[in-house]
Each structure stands twice: as C-alpha cells, then as structure tokens.
Nucleic acid binder design. Structure first.
Length: 316
DNA sequence: GTCATTTGACCCAG
DNA sequence: CTGGGTCAAATGAC
C-alpha cells in the first residue's frame, strides 16, 4: 500500500491515520523478521497484528480497498462458513438490496454478536461518553424496564456503541449496565469516578466477546492493541440518567478507553469479572490474577491459547 | 426553535 | 411465534 494512492476525497486526518497504521504494519513486519520464529506464538500474533492493520486501513479507505479483509483467526482457527458468516454476508447484501426498507420504522439489521461488557453498579455513573436514550422496553419476567442508549456520536461518526441499563430485580438499588460494541467515535473521553460508585467492591464487570463475523473479530483485535491513552477532547453532556461526575482519573484502563466504563478505580479493583467468549478468536479459558492495582477474572479462554495472556499483558 | 426523551411500531433472531 | 432491539414520530424541556 502506497501512501501516494490515497483517495483524494479522504480527509487529511484520516489520511494521517492511515499513514500511521501503515507505518505500524511495516514495523510489525520488521519485528517479525527480527524475531524470526515462524511456528510459534510470535508468528501467530504477527498474523493477528498485521490483520488488524490491514483491516483498519481498509475500513479507513486506504488504497488496497480491493483486498478482502484479513482475519487473523482465519489463518488458524477458521470456522467453516458458519451460519453467522453466511448471515454477515447476507447482512451486507441486504443493506444494498433493501435500502428502501430502511425508511420504514424498525427496519434495520440487528447486530448480533458484538463485544459486550456487563457490569453491576450500585449507582448510575457518568462513564465519560455521550449517550442518547433511544428506547425502553419491558422485559419478560423482569420487574424493571430496560433502557437502551446509543452513543451520542452515532450519526456524526458512526459509532456503534450502545448500552443497556436495567435495575436488578433482586437488588433494585443496583443496576445492570451492559455495554455493547466498541466506541469508534474519535472523541474517546476520559472516564470518571463517581463518588458513591467509587467503591470498586460495588461493581462487577462481565466482559463478553461474542465475535462471529470477520469485522467483529478484527474490531476486537484492534481494540486489544490500541492501548494508548486517549486524549479527552471535550466534556460529555450529562448522561440521560443524570448522574454526577466527581473526578477524573489518569488510570483509565483499556476497557474504559474502548467501551467507556467509568468505574476506573483509584483503589484496587477488587472484583472485576470478565467473560471472554471469542468463539473464533480465542478459545475458552479461565484465569484470574492481580494485575497492577486491578484484579481481573477472565473466563472463556482455554489453556491452550496464548491470546489470553496477550490480552492480559495488554490490560496491564 | 432546537435538541433530548418518550413511546409505540416494526423487524430480527432464536 | 415471541421477546428483544431499534427506529422514528410525537412530545417535552429549555
């Protein structure tokens, strides 16, 4: 991919992003050449990393647009034309063929399996993102309604992140907050700690990757490699559920960067359970450990795969 | 007048 | 077929 072949219409910032990603790809290749162990983990990771660069570049509209997305997991754990893959293709096709239906209410292609992170909080907290409520539903056998929020930058930047907030039946004072999808909006905001909720013991987080499509896999991959701190560019508007911001923290984790989790504890996070369910990307495995000031408990990954350790290192 | 929320309709996945 | 997720018109707040 040559930097000289950028589409003229691309915004300069996007072009710069593509250039940076291209550099990263080249550096990764160099790194792999230096390591030079083709059959081991490094090679596996290299494939994944390169795949992420390729896909991200393609998403951003770089020159190699005719390439098919690279799926690092496909290189070794390919699921044979699964139902979901088929449906993903159908989805893409349906977008093209059923555009008129888009004008109808409720006509959309529901995202099936995206990164989901579930946490339980004793208070509603401002997670540093702009959320817009777009729905509310009564859930079967649940006493309380579920509220649906989407990222406030959905239309500006196409951010697909959503979250669901629902009171827990057994503990009405607590809320189950489910973050779905990753924030792709460029304004990734710094997380905030909320007074009452600042006690990390009040919260547990269940992180679930359910990635059955190529793009979803790659998003997750990219996510785990994007550990740089994000600069806060603006302050969020008030959360629709009106909760108070107390302070911000520089110790904001990878999760916070991506999904906008607000519970960034200045104190050790004593209970944080994460469920990784990457059917194609990562096999199942369970481990728990203390990482810096945070305790993580990650489920859904097998002993045989090193991706978990990789993730864990990234999280640290 | 503008923007956010509410609410019923609609569609999809299981 | 049903429950859940999303859309968009209606409504409310500022």
């Amino acid at each position: 991919m040559e930097s000289s072949s950028w589409p003229e219409s691309l915004p300069s910032r996007r072009i710069k992003a593509i250039q940076e990603l291209t550099k990263g790809e080249i550096i990764t290749k160099k790194l792999h050449a230096m390591i030079g162990r083709p059959e081991n983990i490094e090679s596996d990771l290299k494939l994944q990393i390169l795949g992420m660069f390729e896909n991200t570049l393609q998403i951003l509209g770089s020159s190699n647009i005719n390439k098919t997305p690279h799926n690092p997991t496909n290189d070794h754990v390919r699921s044979p034309s699964s139902k979901d893959d088929q449906k993903s293709e159908d989805s893409a096709e349906s977008i093209n063929t059923k555009i008129p239906l888009k004008t109808k209410r409720g006509c959309y292609k529901r995202r099936k399996k995206a990164l989901t992170i579930t946490k339980v909080a004793s208070t509603l907290i401002d997670d540093g993102y702009v959320w817009r409520k777009y729905g509310q539903k009564t859930i079967l056998y649940s006493k309380h309604q579920r509220n649906y929020f989407r990222c406030g930058h959905k239309f500006e930047q196409g951010c697909q992140a959503t979250k669901q907030v629902q009171k827990i039946d057994d503990e009405p004072s607590k809320y189950k907050i489910t973050y779905i999808g990753l924030h792709t909006c460029k304004i990734l905001q710094r997380a905030h700690i909320i007074g009452e909720a600042s006690d990390p013991r009040d919260n547990s987080i269940l992180i679930s990757f359910e990635t059955n499509t190529l793009m979803e896999n790659n998003k997750v991959d990219t996510f785990f490699l994007s550990t740089k701190h994000q600069q806060k560019e603006c302050f969020p508007s008030l959360d629709p559920l009106k909760h108070e911001q107390v302070s911000s923290s520089d110790h904001h984790t990878l999760w916070d960067s991506v999904v906008g989790l607000s519970q960034v504890p200045s104190e050790p996070m004593s209970m944080m359970s994460c469920t990784l369910d990457c059917d194609d990307m990562v096999s199942s495995r369970v481990f728990s450990s203390t990482c810096g000031t945070h305790d993580y408990e990650i489920e859904g990954m097998t002993e045989s795969h090193d991706y978990g350790d990789f993730l864990f290192d990234q999280l640290c």
